[in-house]
C-alpha cells in the first residue's frame, strides 16, 4: 500500500513529520494499552495503598498522617502474629503434604501401568473447578462434628472431633481441604514436566545399572527442577494469600482466631473495622514477606544459577 506524501502543503509538513517519526512512535503506541491498563489497575492502586499505609482513615472522609505508626502497631499486634503463624502453618502444611501428593499422582498417571488415565486426570483436577466458597461449604459438612464424613465414616479417631470447633484441629482441617482442592492442579504441572523428560536419560541410567529409585533421584527430580521451583513458589504465594477457604470454613477465623490468616485479618481491618490504613499496611507487609520468601526459594532451588 502506498502512503501519500504531501510535500508542499502546510498540513503536509505536519503529516510528513508524523510519517517520519511513526517508526519511532508506533512501538510505543502498540504497547501503550498494556501500560495504560497497568497504570490504572496496578500502578495507581499500588502507590495509593502505599500512601494509605502511612495514614489512618476515620469514617469515610477523614484521614490523618501517622507515618510508620501503622507498621509499629502491626508488629505489636498479637492477632497479626497469630494470623501470620496460622498462614505459615498452612503454607508449610501445603508444601510438605500437597506437593509430594501432587508429584506422586503425576508419577502414577505418567506410568505405563495405570489404566483410565484420562478419567483419573479429570477426577484429580475436578476440585480445582469448584469455587473456593463451595469447597468450604462442602467441607463444613465433611468435618461436621456429629454427622460429618470424617468423624462418621472413618472413625479413625475414636471420638467426635470438633474439627472446626477446637483450636488445635482448625488449621489441619483447612490444610487437608487445601490438599483436596489443589493437589490435582499441581499434579498437572508435574505431569507436564514428567512428559518433557527425555526417555534417553532413563535408558542411559538403566544402562548404568540404576534402579527406579536411583533414576527418580538422579534423573526425574533434577529434570523437574524448574517445574518444582515454579510449583513451589506459586503454591507458597497462594498459601500466603489464603482467605476464602478458612473464612467460610471457620466462620471468620473462630474459635479464638485459630483459623485467622493474614489476608483474613487484612479483610477484617479494611472492611469490617474500617481501618483502611492499617489494612494497607498488612497488605504491604504481606507483599514483602512473599517477595523475600520467593527470592529465597528461587535461589535455593537454583533458578538464578547459570548453566
Amino acid at each position: 500500500m502506498k502512503i501519500p506524501i504531501h510535500r508542499n502543503e502546510p498540513q503536509g509538513i505536519i503529516k510528513n513529520l508524523f510519517w517520519n517519526q511513526q517508526q519511532k512512535i508506533a512501538p510505543y503506541l502498540f504497547i501503550a494499552p498494556f501500560y495504560l491498563l497497568f497504570v490504572v489497575f496496578m500502578g495507581y492502586p499500588l502507590i495509593s495503598s502505599l500512601v494509605m499505609s502511612l495514614y489512618e482513615m476515620r469514617g469515610f472522609q477523614s484521614r490523618v498522617f501517622v507515618g510508620f505508626g501503622n507498621f509499629t502497631d502491626l508488629f505489636g499486634d498479637p492477632i497479626f502474629w497469630k494470623s501470620l503463624r496460622n498462614t505459615a502453618y498452612f503454607a508449610v502444611g501445603t508444601l510438605t503434604l500437597q506437593l509430594p501428593i501432587a508429584l506422586l499422582l503425576a508419577i502414577l498417571l505418567n506410568s505405563k501401568f495405570v489404566k483410565g488415565k484420562n478419567l483419573l486426570r479429570l477426577a484429580f483436577f475436578a476440585p480445582v473447578l469448584v469455587a473456593g466458597v463451595f469447597v468450604a461449604i462442602i467441607f463444613n459438612l465433611v468435618y461436621d462434628q456429629r454427622a460429618g464424613l470424617v468423624n462418621q465414616e472413618f472413625l479413625l479417631f475414636g471420638k467426635e472431633i470438633g474439627w472446626l470447633n477446637e483450636e488445635n484441629y482448625v488449621m489441619p482441617a483447612v490444610i487437608l481441604t487445601g490438599v483436596w482442592q489443589w493437589a490435582g492442579f499441581n499434579m498437572i504441572y508435574f505431569l507436564a514436566g514428567l512428559q518433557g523428560i527425555r526417555q534417553e536419560l532413563y535408558e542411559a541410567a538403566a544402562v548404568d545399572g540404576a534402579n527406579w529409585w536411583q533414576a527418580f533421584i538422579h534423573v526425574t527430580l533434577p529434570s523437574l527442577r524448574p517445574v518444582i521451583a515454579f510449583v513451589f513458589v506459586v503454591s507458597m504465594i497462594g498459601s500466603l494469600q489464603l482467605f476464602d477457604l478458612p473464612f467460610i470454613l471457620t466462620n471468620g477465623g473462630e474459635p479464638a482466631d485459630a483459623g485467622s490468616t493474614i489476608v483474613m485479618y487484612l479483610y477484617k481491618n479494611g472492611f469490617q473495622f474500617m481501618r483502611l490504613g492499617y489494612a494497607a499496611t498488612i497488605g504491604w507487609v504481606l507483599f514483602f514477606i512473599i517477595a523475600v520468601i520467593s527470592i529465597v526459594q528461587l535461589k535455593l532451588l537454583g533458578i538464578f544459577r547459570d548453566e
Partner: peptide, 14 residues
C-alpha cells in the same frame, strides 16, 4: 458447646 460452627449448623440439628 454448639455442634459445628453455629446454632444453624447441620451438626447442631443432628
Amino acid at each position: 458447646s454448639v455442634y459445628g460452627t453455629w446454632h444453624g449448623d447441620p451438626s447442631n440439628f443432628a
